[in-house]
């Protein structure tokens, strides 16, 4: 399998990393936004799973990958609404609500998927999102640019604008924000909705642009890795994207090792991203970021008190 002409190994790994990083980045941005507003979304894994299934399924039914992306985002929005209702409006424990969402959604995807998706090799709609169709894009699929653009928007919204300030205020001290006239519940719910939409979109990209097929184990822990990366990056959209890229590189490296047949079992290689995340998370707590203007949202996980 060493027949990649004119492309050395490092470049290939980085290309693969970027391809895998773009769905990761989208979901991670969504998580950053919702955690900045003070709501943990542990349902990420499930939202990505459902996004992946719906994205692929709708594309297969209607023959349009772009429609699939929209459907993925839409179903993510719906799941986000459920999480917002539980975590923001009825003040349920965000950890339990997230775990429930995760189980329900991964279960639903694994249960509906096999009944919906009939396997075909390389359906036509896949090529709509493939890099080779867009010569101007330097070999990356358009979804990568979508992720980057959304990342820039997230950075600019969170750091400068009044909306961003309202979001951070809702996550830092919701009671004070409410007294300043911010409608904290509304802000939090919209952030969770956006987070859910981005997670769904990320799932759709994962199945349509990255894997180009759907499998029942689809996100395979990606959601949880993202949840670990968000605190590691100090809840900053720029840094979280960087970490996503690094983790995606670890993943690409491990896949490459499997392809070229390193003398290690695939299962052991498969552990690499998880072990890397574990080490990074612990190291990140031992040597935390210098405290600056972007500290941990201090009301993270705490509902607004009446």
């Amino acid at each position: 399998m060493m027949d990649w002409p004119a492309m050395n190994m490092a470049t290939a790994i980085w290309m693969a990393a970027v391809a895998y990083a773009s769905p990761m980045m989208l979901a991670a941005l969504g998580e950053v936004i919702s955690e900045r507003a003070g709501v943990m979304n542990l349902g990420l894994e499930g939202m990505i799973a459902v996004g992946a299934l719906v994205g692929y399924g709708v594309s297969a039914d209607h023959g349009s990958a772009w429609l699939g992306l929209a459907a993925g985002g839409g179903v993510g929005l719906l799941l986000g609404a459920v999480h917002a209702a539980l975590a923001v409006w009825i003040g349920a424990d965000q950890i339990v609500a997230g775990l429930g969402m995760s189980l329900a959604a991964t279960g639903a995807a694994a249960f509906l998927g096999p009944m919906w998706i009939t396997w075909r090799s390389q359906p036509a709609f896949i090529s709509e999102l493939s890099a080779s169709r867009y010569k101007a894009l330097l070999g990356f699929p358009p979804t990568t640019y979508l992720a980057l653009a959304l990342g820039l928007i997230a950075v600019s919204v969170l750091s400068g604008r009044r909306l961003g300030i309202a979001i951070r205020a809702s996550g830092d001290s919701p009671e004070a924000a409410e007294a300043l006239g911010v409608r904290v519940r509304a802000v939090r719910s919209s952030c969770v909705l956006v987070g859910g939409m981005l997670a769904g979109l990320s799932g759709a990209i994962l199945s349509l642009a990255y894997a180009q097929t759907w499998t029942s184990t689809m996100p395979n822990g990606m959601g949880w890795i993202i949840i670990a990366l968000v605190p590691l990056s100090g809840w900053r959209p720029g840094r979280v994207m960087l970490f996503c890229l690094l983790l995606a590189a670890v993943n690409a490296l491990q896949i490459r090792f499997q392809i070229i047949g390193v003398k290690l079992s695939a299962s052991i290689l498969d552990m690499m991203p998880y072990v890397a995340t574990l080490i990074a998370v612990i190291a990140g707590r031992i040597w935390p970021w210098r405290k600056g203007r972007w500290n941990e949202p201090s009301a993270l996980g705490r509902p607004l008190e009446q």
């Binding site: 499930g46 459920v82 539980l86 009825i90 003040g91 349920a92 424990d93 339990v96 609500a97 775990l99 429930g100 969402m101 995760s102 189980l103 329900a104 959604a105 991964t106 279960g107 639903a108 995807a109 694994a110 249960f111 998927g113 096999p114 009944m115 029942s216």
Partner: peptide, 22 residues
Amino acid sequence: IPQAFSTALEGICLLCWLTSVW
């Protein structure tokens, strides 16, 4: 019906539980 049906039901039950506690 794939067996994951029961997994989905588990998650849904947890969400229902949170609601009923509320």
